[in-house]
Amino acid sequence: MSVRHLAGILALLLLAAGAAPVMAEPNDGTVSGQVVDKTAGGGSTAGATVTLVSFGRKEQAPLGQRTAQTDADGRYSFTDLDRDPNIVYLTLARFQNVNYPTDQPFQLQDQAAAQADVAVYETTSADDAIQLENLNLLVVGASQGTLQCMEMGALLNKGDRTFVTANPQDQALARAIKFALPKGAMSVQMQTGFSDQDVIGAIGGVQVTSPVLPGRHQFAMSFDLPYNGSSVDVSMQIPYPAAAYSVYLPDTGVKLEGTPLASAGATQLGGQSYQLYSASNVAKSTIVAGQLSGLGANGSFGPGQLAIISLGVVLFVLGGGVLLFGNRLRPGLRGNGESATDLEQERLELVVRLAALDERFSAGEVSQAQYDAERARGKQRLRELTLARKQATPVIV
């Protein structure tokens, strides 16, 4: 099982862990817990594999892992663990081919033992419990006949079973989680919420083969939409019931005509003014018609500004908070070469490490010379990764 995907989750959470280190006896720590099936009428969790991953705060990287099997009651334990205040632990259980992490990482420097129960669920391939709490289409800008867009929102699994894709290897029969996109959308990339490696093409949009646990799942994806002249069709068929659907347009004279969307006036996102169009209680499979007009050959933003604007806007539209990148883990997907997803994961981890470096410098933990050198190396690598990411093979709808 690869632990590299855990780095993004843990590093983001560790940025807020500012407690001062305390002395502790090493190698006498214990972690125990129970894997509990939360599905109504669920069965035994005996024999489930539990993995304990150790993560270094200073290194901002995984340090190692251990595995154990649950007993007849679903219980597990790990002993002789290091209580170094630099080390943070996370446990995850694999049940019916899905990984389930504990709610929060934990440390052992203040106590010798920790309890870490893990909730797991039975699986289903039926999507009856899938809904959209909100769905948002953001038009960031246009450049040389291409619209740069973001689609973001919150997907709800309101059942007590984890949704898994039937036939995930067969694109035509996958029956995965659907995300609608306007016809002709290309260069689709999942930015947060689900792994970009799990995105496959589908009629009217894309599908994501990642497991979807019960609960709320924020997501954001970017895509380009080519157009000719001064207008483009942004109609979409909404795949699941949606409590709210909104479209944000730059306040530069671009207009939207369609149903059932209605104008809701101007709003501010990321320091920019947008016109908002919205609809409520959109039924499953509703076709939301939309025609943008007033586009020019050159938009209000160039393509290079998409990533800069996106983070602030995504946080605003999704309601703030920490966004977790690649937090649905799947083993055995990484090959020997560096795929586009590998590069993107490294890029995100590097962004987190740079943020952690800023925190350490502000706290006086690193010198000015060390800070400047490490930041320069990080920024150079970030430029290389960003360039390599642009060369990834696009998904065309």
Score class of each variant (00 low, 15 high):
Gly18Trp: 05
Pro26Glu: 14
Val22Leu: 02
Gly18Lys: 14
Pro26Lys: 04
Gln34Pro: 02
Gly18Glu: 14
Val35Ser: 01
Thr49Phe: 00
Val50Ile: 14
Leu15His: 11
Ala17Glu: 13
Pro26Ile: 13
Leu10Phe: 02
Ala24Gly: 02
Ala19His: 10
Gly42Val: 10
Gly41Tyr: 10
Gly29Val: 11
Ala46Met: 08
Pro26Tyr: 10
Ala48Gln: 10
Pro26Arg: 08
Ala16Glu: 12
Ser32Ile: 10
Thr45Leu: 03
Pro21Ala: 14
Thr49Ala: 02
Val35Tyr: 01
Asp37Ala: 04
Ala48Pro: 04
Lys38Leu: 14
Asp28Gly: 11
Ala19Gly: 06
Gly47Cys: 07
Ser32Trp: 09
Ser54Arg: 14
Ser44Thr: 15
Gly47His: 11
Pro21Lys: 07
Gly29Lys: 05
Val35Leu: 03
Leu10Ala: 02
Leu52Gly: 05
Ala48Asn: 09
Ala20Pro: 00
Gly33Tyr: 10
Ser32Met: 12
Ala46Gln: 15
Glu25Leu: 11
Val22Gly: 02
Ala11Thr: 11
Val35Trp: 00
Gly33Val: 12
Ala40Ile: 08
Ala46Asp: 11
Val50Leu: 07
Asp28Tyr: 01
Ser54His: 08
Asp28Ala: 09
Gly42Lys: 08
Gly43Asn: 14
Thr39Pro: 04
Pro21Tyr: 06
Gly41Ile: 13
Ala24Glu: 03
Val53Phe: 03
Val53Met: 11
Thr30Ala: 03
Ala20Asn: 06
Thr51Pro: 04
Ala24Leu: 04
Phe55Tyr: 15
Thr49Arg: 01
Leu14Trp: 01
Lys38His: 10
Thr49Asp: 10
Thr39Ile: 07
Val31Gly: 00
Val22Met: 00
Phe55Val: 12
Ser54Ile: 01
Ala19Pro: 00
Thr51Val: 15
Val53Asn: 01
Asp37Ile: 04
Val53Leu: 09
Thr49Ser: 04
Ser32Leu: 12
Ala46Leu: 07
Ala48Gly: 05
Lys38Asp: 11
Gly33Phe: 08
Ala24Gln: 02
Leu15Glu: 15
Ala16Leu: 06
Val22Gln: 01
Gly43Met: 07
Leu10Gly: 01
Gln34Met: 11
Gly41Pro: 09
Ala20Ser: 14
Glu25Pro: 00
